[in-house]
Design a protein around this nucleic acid. Structure first.
Length: 201
DNA sequence: ATGGTCAACGTGCCGG
DNA sequence: CCGGCACGTTGACCAT
């Protein structure tokens, strides 16, 4: 348990959902968890300002005041620098060991829990994006196969039609391949006989 | 008003 | 048993 969390433990009671995590191995028994957002205030534009930079630890009286003034929790917005550093570190490792986590948290003036949560959420976002990409790829593959299937069916139909035509033609004439245009040509009996005799000579 | 984003949380599962 | 993670959810904030 980190110091900052320890000192504000119990202050989230009555702040809506969250604020409790199960004690390991004891599902029924709950312990209050530090409400991390208590270190944030609203800027004039309504944007949450991270006060952790100069106030990591907070006192009970501080939090009492926060509790009274702000019933609802404030949403932490990570600064651009914090986000980009987290992103960079995620590019290197999608999971962090406790030492790395702590070091990064210290570097970013965040709590290890916040870094941990950020990485969990980041992994979830990556996975979501990946499945979306895979879905699109499969959709495309499916469309390609469908198109190919259509094309092959059409080709098959043409071949069958051609075959029927050939059978009908062969009753009266012989088909052969024209050497110049590479198309099937119809030979009458007389010509056929001529070619055959030339072949023998 | 409403939908999207995202930090934070609850819970269950798994490996050590 | 415990820590860490995935997954689903909540709620604050923001853009439209």
């Amino acid at each position: 348990m980190e110091d900052a969390e320890e000192c504000i433990t119990g202050l989230c009671l009555g702040l809506g959902m969250g604020g409790h995590v199960p004690i390991k191995g004891k599902q029924k028994e709950k312990r209050p968890v530090a409400c991390l957002d208590l270190a944030f205030e609203l800027c004039p534009k309504g944007e949450a300002i991270n006060l952790n930079h100069d106030k990591v630890e907070s006192t009970d009286s501080d939090n009492d005041n926060s509790n009274n003034n702000n019933r609802s929790r404030k949403k932490l917005r990570l600064s651009k620098d914090q986000s980009s550093m987290l992103e960079n570190s995620f590019k290197l490792h999608t999971t962090l060991n406790p030492v790395q986590k702590q070091a990064l948290a210290h570097q970013l003036k965040l709590k290890t829990r916040q870094v941990e949560v950020w990485f969990q959420n980041r992994r979830a976002r990556t996975k979501l994006k990946q499945t979306e990409v895979e879905r699109e790829w499969l959709k495309k593959q499916c469309q390609n196969l469908s198109d190919e299937n259509k094309r092959l069916k059409k080709e098959l139909q043409e071949v069958r039609a051609l075959k029927v035509g050939c059978i009908q033609l062969s009753k009266t004439a012989t088909l052969t391949m024209c050497s110049s245009c590479e198309k099937l040509v119809k030979l009458n009996e007389e010509k056929k006989n001529n070619i055959e005799s030339e072949g023998r000579n």
